[in-house]
């Protein structure tokens, strides 16, 4: 089993909705050394897969960033530091090292 963090971004549709676009970008624009340790995916609620994921994760609002099943950022786009903090709190030792490198390098 992969030890990567699972990050799900629940959206209306990142193409159609600017709030969803930048919630997704809060994850997709993370440095590559951090992204190498996470698996992230957008689930838009316009299709059955997205609806099922929303229900599975007990989503409450759109957009939401979910990390390892926890509803972490609900209708609040995180700062770079905030998302690193939440990833770090759930990270393997290897990812924690990469997150600290990202902090030092800045956004």
């Amino acid at each position: 089993m992969s030890d990567k963090l699972v990050v799900d971004i629940l959206t209306l549709d990142s193409v159609q909705c600017a709030a969803c676009q930048y919630m997704l970008e809060a994850v997709s624009a993370l440095p590559d050394n951090v992204k190498a340790h996470i698996e992230f995916k957008e689930w838009n609620i316009k299709g059955p897969d997205g609806i099922n994921k929303f229900l599975e994760l007990n989503g409450r609002v759109l957009p939401t960033i979910v990390i390892n099943g926890d509803l972490v950022f609900e209708s609040i786009i995180p700062t770079f530091e905030e998302i690193l903090d939440e990833l770090s709190a759930r990270a393997s030792e290897a990812l924690k090292v990469e997150i600290e490198k990202a902090r030092i390098a800045g956004s």
Partner: peptide, 11 residues
Amino acid sequence: RGVKIFTDVVK
């Protein structure tokens, strides 16, 4: 600015 604007408003 991209998503960086949400960090800028704080930092």
